[in-house]
Design a protein around this nucleic acid. Structure first.
Lengths: 141, 141
DNA sequence: ATCACTGCAAAGGGTTTGCAAGTTC
DNA sequence: GAACTTGCAAACCCTTTGCAGTGAT
């Protein structure tokens, strides 16, 4: 329950924050513009500045996880532990990969004598849809 | 030889590009501000706008590889094939990890039915120096 | 000589910030 | 009622762009 989640982090339950969490949970991965659009579609007007603040707060307390991409907007997802992602270079779609991170982390850590808190793994390629319909022009998904 | 490298990509050999490559090769990983500083230190004045252009060009032809970080400036390195990185969350230092990517890639790809071109792996933690001298305030390195 | 590149300055665009008004607990 | 949050607008800052002058081949 998002109400509990916010309270547990000492954040107040505002309609804006609850809506943000609801949308992000529904969409899985989302960037700020898509989130902004979803707010509008659901009839709730919100300034971008407020969205930036909400996303920043929720990320800093660990409710959200951010996926930083080069030349694409940062994506946000509900934080649910490390997992690899697949990024389609053509449509920009981001997907969770369901693979045992343990194995990967173990291997990676062997190369690294430092204490490691987290591991980001991103595969880059072409997604199912884009390889099936290669003529489809580049479009955000 | 950087001269050959540039020519092979159809780029002209300018002192600015050669200097950029020299510095980046020396430093291993560098962001644009550090690069700018290094230019100044070596007595070559260059506008940031030109550096942005050079880094963009060298990256787009594949001479440089960019490492995009959240809340830190993009780092540039001479492109030498995929390898995992370690990022110190405290000092921001980026290090190459020398580990067989193959194993990791194989595992990761098993979770992914799509055609994968490249894999980015980033470990986040605290580096040797920062854990040895934990009182040292956060500083860029 | 030609075409590419640099330098400069200005524009652009995403993100952050200050402050007053409005909410939550 | 106190503290936090939102909304708005302006400020910020990094990055890109246009164009004239310069340089590489």
């Amino acid at each position: 329950m998002h109400v509990q989640l916010l309270k547990s982090k000492g954040l107040k339950c505002t309609p804006q924050r609850l809506m943000a969490l609801k949308i992000i949970e529904e969409k899985g991965h989302i960037d700020i513009d898509q989130l902004f659009e979803n707010f509008n579609n659901s009839g709730m007007k919100i300034p971008l500045a407020t969205l930036y603040r909400i996303l920043g707060e929720l990320s800093s307390v660990g409710i959200l996880h951010t996926v930083t991409l080069s030349s694409q907007k940062t994506r946000y997802e509900i934080a649910k532990g490390d997992h690899p992602h697949f990024l389609c270079e053509q449509c920009g779609q981001l997907e969770d990969l369901h693979v045992a991170m343990n194995e990967i982390v173990t291997i990676a850590k062997h190369a690294c004598s430092y204490s490691t808190h987290s591991v980001s793994i991103m595969l880059h390629g072409i997604c199912q849809n884009c390889s099936t319909f290669p003529t489809t022009d580049k479009e955000e998904g």
